[in-house]
């Protein structure tokens, strides 16, 4: 790991100022993505701004009709929060499937979203639930926020402060894990929302998380796995690597989408 200067702001405003003042500074919270890539020297930020001492940034609460999760809430906190479990159980389950217990004790929702790893789980939930990403500057819809592999709409001095999840009527997340890394080879999040249905896929797209519109249209007419019979996914634009071909991932998406709808409808 290369040398860096470490900063520990007490407020989001101070953190944003530090980012603005120090070129190529990076934000750290749980450090479970950033520290490994710094150890590999794939990243060498000259400044680290630690958000973990900002009070209240990990709060989880209901505000009106939305579940609000603070950016530094750990996967463990989201998975075990009674508020999340009651409002969007599928989201609690998703958080409980990330990495392993020790990783979940440190990794945060804000970190996962800011990194936008194409195999991460949270992007699928944010996309399918139509969550709003709140930063120190603005509010972003998933379609504007996610901008491809490891890239987001975040500006250099912009910090995610919380994520607003509108409550779905039904939702479920099913993932097929890579046997070694436990990252999603494919993950599908299905959400029946008051106005529409969304199906979001992670792990498979060569451009990161994406929505499956043909499946959404079918499910909008009737929210049952039966309407997905015969629907297939094109392999074009999907990842192909040593873990699975694009065709295999295309097949998995259709299977997992079906299972996710089954799981969502089973939770009456």
């Amino acid at each position: 790991m290369y040398e860096f200067k470490y900063h520990r702001p007490g407020t989001v405003r101070q953190a944003a100022n530090l980012l603005a003042k120090n070129e190529d500074a990076k934000v750290i919270a749980g450090g479970h993505t950033l520290v490994p890539v710094m150890k590999q020297r794939l990243a060498s930020p000259p400044h680290l701004v630690d958000l973990s001492h900002i009070e209240g940034l990990n709060e989880i609460e209901m505000k009106g009709r939305a579940l609000v999760i603070g950016a530094t809430a750990t996967h463990f906190e989201v998975a075990n929060s009674p508020t999340v479990g009651e409002a969007i159980p599928a989201l609690a389950e998703l958080a409980g499937m990330i990495g392993d217990p020790a990783v979940r004790h440190r990794g945060t929702i804000g970190g996962s979203l800011a990194n936008n790893d194409p195999t991460a789980d949270y992007p699928a939930a944010v996309m399918a639930l139509g969550a709003t990403i709140v930063t120190n500057k603005r509010r972003l819809k998933p379609e504007e926020y996610f901008q491809g592999l490891f890239s987001t709409a975040l500006e250099p001095d912009e910090i995610i402060t919380k994520v607003l999840f509108p409550l779905p009527k039904k939702a479920a997340y099913v993932k097929f894990r890579n046997q070694a890394s436990r990252y999603a080879l494919v993950g599908v999040f299905v959400a029946k929302r008051p106005s529409d249905v969304r199906v979001a896929v992670t792990g498979a797209g060569s451009n990161g998380v994406f929505r499956l519109e043909s499946f959404e249209e079918a499910l909008k007419k009737r929210f049952s796995h039966k309407v997905l019979d015969g629907l297939t996914v094109a392999a074009e634009g999907l990842n192909s690597d040593i873990h699975g071909s694009a065709e295999y991932r295309a097949h998995l998406i259709a299977v997992l989408a079906r299972r996710a709808v089954e799981a969502a409808t089973a939770k009456e």
């Binding site: 470490y6 520990r8 750290i28 450090g31 479970h32 520290v35 490994p36 630690d50 973990s52 463990f76 217990p101 020790a102 990783v103 004790h105 440190r106």
Partner: peptide
Amino acid sequence: GRAVKSCTTLAVM
């Protein structure tokens, strides 16, 4: 009181 991986945690944190 919570299990963490100390190879992925900075001492300053």
